[in-house]
Design a protein around this nucleic acid. Structure first.
Length: 631
RNA sequence: GGGCCAGUAGCUCAGCUGGAUAGAGCACCUCCCUUCUAAGGAGGCGGUCAAAGGUUCGAAUCCUUUCUGGCUCACCA
């Protein structure tokens, strides 16, 4: 409607006012509740142009529109605003049109280009936690939103399966795992512990033993015992100790942590871990076997978590496969002068012309760093998918700098698609107690949280007592759907860019702006519709303001999907749905439907309800939230 | 210190490229189940939009400065 009005004004502006107009001066907004009307044209820009009174401009345009657009019934001008009143038939026609379209609001699948969405991308040394949940729900949802915008989407993740972190778990498992009566070390099978949890346990175990070793190293250094350490270390240590005496109290802790680092990098455990990494890069059979065994445990564990989260992937990349290509690309870029080599053999890129620093891309020992791998992975992806248009990286905002660097490197290497790549940067999840810190044991485990929200849903749902006749499978499915719906909605309703507060109590809340509130409205509509046999095309009946309000909301859905796609923001979908549901509940509470005597009006209200349920379903699907038939 | 991001009701958050008297939920206080699911609805209380300048018909929104908080500037990932 806005588009139509805009066009007709632009085309006829000259004949009404005698001069041309730019179409961006035609600005609409929703009519405020206090005024009569359905759509409001802001007159200020026109007044400025025409140098006449708002009343005059508004009157002229209003008259013209009323005479030329049949669905415009009336208008009024209030201090610089032209409020347009649409006819009742317009709303009925709109509703009939929405009813005809089963996937209303969605653009035809695959009508646009191909986008790869990377999300999740875990390390294989620890279980998934709350931060990963935001990441996974966000990545999944953005993928679905882009699909609804007509893009072909490839969901992917890059598994960080190699590096010093996984070697730490391997070393700890080798050294510290107890043996059972059969003489076996701990495995998921013989302990019943989920694979990712078991490997994570040994990562923690490594750090514990390491800390003990560091403490003992430092205390022997303090007592002057340097046996087993070479001269460089001793010199460095004495230099640090001396500098303490010169410095004030503030920097003592800084120096302490430097001493700690020195002890760490010279501990026997770190040496073992590094040695294992070196062996792994040389494809030492024994190490490789252990590595793939322990990673296998982790994947099996992750699969369980992914399944209950309801996310999936079309293609998985592993860093162990892509880091070599990254190195090759660096050598190539070195020849082309994109990179330069320092005396110690390390390779760098100078990004100071873009306001960034110089950045290392290859260590002096020739091994790859993080960004090197990412270069390799990106190029690999464009080789795998010829028609790939862009990659969306769902990664936390602590890596903003990293992605700036990555995209610039790719650009300098001559890849034109680099400009289109996008870092979907989201904020951290804080707890009421502050940041999540592994050292302080405040990490919220994903599996445990999921279990909690499902149990809570179970408790409340049983209390409500609408599902007495369901069998156990149906019930459990429902509890899962409600619990996860609440959790996903909670994490997705906030603008992804912003850091957010995760309050465990609020997250299982079922009232107000929550997933279950929306699911409940859907269930309520569905159970009402179950009592109806058929629906007719709606006749031109008169409609109430509550009904009109809902149709207005429904009409917004396509543009909300578009906007959510452009901004990579599930929050827009969530907030939209909440508004829709609120309007509907208001209507539902105040106006009879099934018991309405006038059959044409009753039919209209039923079709309206049916389409609210449809849009709730379609919108929630974009968030990965399912909606129940009853609850 | 350099770069980036944020600051809106007691708490958690909306507020689109500047537009009418800044909105929700939670919490607190009133009401409403002999109508279809009360996980609901109607109403009340609650704001110097961090602060100060500026841009203009008009600023929570744009610009500058200051304050506060976060992230980042590794031969970690």
């Amino acid at each position: 409607m806005e588009k139509q009005i805009k066009e007709i004004i632009v085309v006829n502006f000259k004949s009404i006012f005698g001069l041309e107009i730019q179409d961006d001066l035609i600005q609409f907004q929703e009519t405020k509740k206090e005024f009569q009307g359905d759509l409001t044209l802001v007159l200020f820009p026109l007044i400025k142009l025409l140098r006449t009174s708002p009343i005059e401009v508004g009157q002229k345009i209003g008259d013209f529109l009323k005479n030329n657009i049949s669905s415009i019934r009336d208008f009024n001008v209030v201090s610089g605003f032209l409020n347009i009143v649409l006819s009742e038939n317009y709303w009925i026609d709109s509703l009939n049109e929405i009813e005809r379209n089963v996937s209303y609001g969605y653009v035809d699948q695959d009508s646009k280009s191909t986008i790869m969405v990377e999300y999740s991308s875990p390390n294989t040394n620890k279980p998934l936690h709350l931060g990963h949940l935001r990441n996974n729900f966000l990545g999944y949802s953005v993928s679905e939103i882009l699909k609804a915008n007509g893009y072909k989407v490839i969901k992917t993740q890059i598994v960080n399966d190699r590096g010093i972190h996984i070697c730490k778990s391997m070393v700890a498992w080798n050294n510290f795992s107890p043996l059972n009566e059969k003489g076996e070390k701990e495995t998921p099978e013989n302990t019943g512990v989920k694979g990712d949890k078991l490997v994570g346990k040994y990562y923690v175990e490594f750090e514990k033993h390491l800390n003990v070793e560091i403490d003992s190293i430092i205390s022997s250094w303090k007592s002057g015992d340097f046996q087993g350490f070479n001269k460089e270390i001793i010199t460095e240590y004495t230099r640090l100790i001396k500098s303490i005496n010169k410095e004030d109290g503030k920097s003592i802790s800084k120096i302490d942590s430097k001493i700690e680092d020195l002890a760490r990098s010279n501990s026997s455990l770190m040496f073992e871990a590094k040695e294992m990494l070196r062996k792994w890069e040389n494809k030492d059979p024994e190490v490789y076997l252990l590595w793939s065994k322990m990673n296998g445990w982790v994947y099996a564990g992750f699969d369980i978590t992914y399944k209950s989260m309801g996310v999936d992937f079309d293609k998985i990349y592993y860093e162990s496969d892509t880091f070599i290509l990254g190195k090759d690309l660096v050598f190539e870029g070195l020849k082309n002068g994109v990179f330069y080599k320092k005396n110690d053999g390390s390779v760098w890129i100078d990004l100071s012309e873009y306001g960034l620093d110089q950045k290392l891309v290859l260590r002096s020992d020739g091994t790859a760093v993080y960004v090197t791998q990412d270069v390799g992975t990106a190029v690999d992806r464009y080789r795998d998918y010829i028609d790939l248009d862009r990659i969306v990286y769902t990664v936390g905002n602590e890596q903003d700098y990293h992605f700036k660097v990555l995209f610039l490197i790719l650009e300098k290497l001559g890849y034109t698609w680099a400009k289109k790549c996008f870092h979907l940067s989201y904020g951290m999840v804080d707890l009421p107690t502050g940041k999540m810190k592994s050292r302080e044991g405040t990490i919220v485990d994903a599996d445990e949280l999921i279990e909690d929200v499902i149990n809570n849903a179970k408790e409340i749902t049983q209390e409500r007592g609408h599902i007495g006749d369901m069998n156990d499978d149906e019930k459990n499915e429902l509890f899962h759907l409600i619990g996860m719906g609440g959790l996903k909605y909670y994490l997705l309703k906030v603008d992804p860019k912003k850091r957010m507060m995760f309050n465990p109590e609020d997250s299982i809340e079922l009232n107000g702006n929550t997933g279950p509130f929306i699911q409940y409205t859907h269930a309520r509509i569905k159970s009402m519709l179950r009592k109806v046999n058929h629906f007719d095309q709606i006749k031109y009946v008169s409609i109430l303001s509550e009904e009109k309000e809902i149709i207005k909301q429904l009409l917004k859905f396509p543009s909300v999907i578009k906007e959510a796609g452009e901004n990579y923001s599930p929050a827009l979908i969530a907030n939209y749905t909440y508004e829709l549901v609120k309007s509907y509940n208001s209507f539902y509470q105040a106006i009879p439907i099934l018991i309405e005597k006038n059959l044409e009006i009753k039919n209209m209200r039923l079709v309206l309800s049916k389409n609210v349920a449809k849009v709730i379903y379609l919108a929630m699907r974009l968030l990965g939230v399912q909606v129940p038939e009853r609850m």
